[in-house]
């Protein structure tokens, strides 16, 4: 992340010089830092709401039932989380919310799952295998119905926007499986 951070900023400055766009870049730099704070403030409401709703389910025991059902298949992907029921159920909630296209609802569960995994992490600065696996499959963004994209396409009056559903499903499945594949192969080589 360190190198990516430095690389992105320096490359931007170099390209801005070549393209003679430095004024736009500087302007965008200041504006976007403000936007970052606005985004996180908007997140407070959504986060609070979903964590609240999920806490009701937790207190009533519904989450335990849910995590028992989903535990077996998830343990194949996350073998280290055998004793960590909270993490497993939050991962399950995150993946199901993402699959349904509810990205806003998925983020709080994802962060919660990370916190659950961090509790059992011995080195708090270093990501565990399970954390990396969870992140990788999350970045692959498995989705059954790409609701937002279809909304944009139908607003633009495309003929039959649902024609992209099947190709998207195939592509997202390939991306999902390859994320799993890469993360499992790579985990042996990164200490």
């Amino acid at each position: 992340m360190n190198y990516i951070f430095i690389f992105l900023i320096l490359i931007s400055f170099i390209c801005a010089t070549i393209n003679n766009r430095m004024d736009i870049v500087v302007d965008e730099m200041l504006k976007s830092s403000q936007r970052a704070v606005e985004i996180s403030f908007a997140l407070i409401g959504i986060m609070g709401f979903w964590l609240g709703i999920i806490n009701i389910a937790k207190k009533s025991g519904l989450i335990d039932i849910f995590s028992k059902c989903i535990k077996k298949p998830l343990l194949y992907i996350f073998p280290d989380l055998k004793e960590n029921n909270d993490a497993l159920s939050n991962i399950a909630l995150n993946i199901s919310a993402n699959a349904l296209g509810l990205t806003n609802a998925a983020t709080p569960f994802g962060i919660k799952a990370m916190e659950n995994m961090q509790k059992e992490n011995k080195n708090k600065q270093r990501a565990t295998n399970s954390m990396c696996t969870f992140l990788a499959i999350n970045t692959a963004g498995f989705q059954i119905v790409p609701a937002v994209v279809i909304a944009i396409l139908s607003a633009a009056k495309m003929d039959n926007p649902s024609q992209i559903i099947i190709p998207t499903l195939i592509v997202t499945s390939i991306a999902f499986l390859s994320a799993l594949f890469f993360v499992k192969i790579l985990e042996r080589h990164f200490k």
């Binding site: 951070f5 992105l8 900023i9 490359i11 931007s12 400055f13 170099i14 390209c15 801005a16 070549i18 393209n19 766009r21 736009i24 870049v25 302007d27 965008e28 730099m29 504006k31 976007s32 830092s33 936007r35 970052a36 985004i39």
Partner: peptide, 12 residues
């Protein structure tokens, strides 16, 4: 967010 914003604005 700053990284991505300036990267896009730079025309890279």
């Amino acid at each position: 967010i700053v990284c991505t914003a300036i990267f896009r604005a730079s025309g890279a």
